[in-house]
């Protein structure tokens, strides 16, 4: 029995090593190409081991350090503020949805679910945020539109409350005379750590990786996040290589090379890889998927 078990574990571990290799190998390719000398990269293509090692891509990024560091600063700030606000709003919205005392509970559930299926499209949303709220070229533009709250997170959090917060506990607290807000913050919140960590990570990831809000609302490059910088470089390259550029007077030599694009991609991913393991144990406990009406 134990021998059989051990073989089974061996096979499982082997499969997972394969899966991990499949998942990581392309990332290593990315890393290695960011460490390869430019001309070599153009001549030989991508290799898992740089045939001619060079730190020039990273040196270039250090050279435009103020831009990259500023981009990092923006990304970190926006991620932190956005995640905290988004968390709080999601938390405050999802909890009442999980309570039977909430009047028109079904209506509110659908109110959320509807937003997952329909959206007004880019232009109306853009007009809303820029003409009524004037958030263009402000940090708010990176935080507020689209990312703060989404239906999936609300429904997931609500399902967590339904399944993991014993109703008796809430009832007991209320009999002791605690108001709804006290119940929420003193009883429910401490029990919701896994949920908070999970939804927090999900919201945080979206903020960290977002470049669309920059594309729509930001033209001031002082407000570019890391992902926006990367995306702008890549879209410039794509525009040039589409052959649409008129005249010939552009100097493509000034555009960051493939190696640099890869290097920016790498430095955009590394922080997440460092943070994720700390969230992991909560992550798994926090994910609860359930229906809309709950």
């Amino acid at each position: 029995m134990t021998a059989k078990h051990r073989i089974g574990q061996g096979i499982l571990n082997f499969i997972f090593v394969l899966l991990c290799v499949a998942a990581v190998a392309p990332f290593l390719l990315l890393l290695s190409s960011s460490l390869t000398e430019e001309a070599t990269l153009l001549r030989e293509g991508y290799n898992f081991f740089p045939s001619k090692f060079s730190l020039e891509s990273y040196a270039y990024l250090m050279g435009s350090a103020s831009k990259i560091t500023k981009g990092y600063g923006i990304t970190v700030f926006v991620t932190l503020v956005g995640t905290v606000c988004g968390m709080l709003m999601t938390f405050l919205f999802a909890y009442p949805l999980s309570r039977r005392e909430l009047p028109h509970r079904t209506f509110f559930s659908f109110f959320v679910f509807f937003t997952m299926l329909f959206n007004g499209g880019l232009v109306p949303t853009y007009m809303m945020w820029t003409q009524t709220f004037h958030i263009r070229n402000t940090l708010w533009a990176l935080i507020i539109p689209g990312l703060l709250m989404n239906g999936f997170n609300i429904i997931m959090m609500r399902s967590f409350f339904n399944s993991s917060i014993p109703n008796e506990l809430v009832e007991a607290a209320r009999i002791d005379g605690a108001g709804e807000y006290r119940v929420l913050f003193q009883v429910v919140l401490p029990l919701s750590k896994p949920m908070i960590a999970t939804i927090g990570l999900m919201i945080g990831l979206r903020y960290w990786n977002d470049w669309t809000n920059s594309l729509y609302y930001i033209t001031d490059e002082n407000l570019y996040s890391i992902q926006a910088i990367l995306n702008t470089i890549i879209s410039n390259v794509q525009f040039l290589s589409s052959g649409q550029a008129i005249g010939s007077a552009y100097s493509a030599a000034n555009l960051p090379s493939v190696g640099i694009r890869m290097a920016i991609a790498v430095i955009g991913i590394i922080p997440i890889l460092c943070i994720y393991p700390f969230f992991q144990k909560y992550f798994v406990k926090g994910i609860v998927v359930g229906g809309v009406k709950g």
Binding site: M127, T130, E221, I234, N236, F239
Partner: peptide, 29 residues
Amino acid sequence: LEFIALGNWAQQTNLLLTSDEVDVLAFYQ
């Protein structure tokens, strides 16, 4: 002066033109 990356130009100017946030611009792309 608002300098807009060529790769983002079409998207961003098209949005800008929905309101009065830009006055003079290049018609390009």
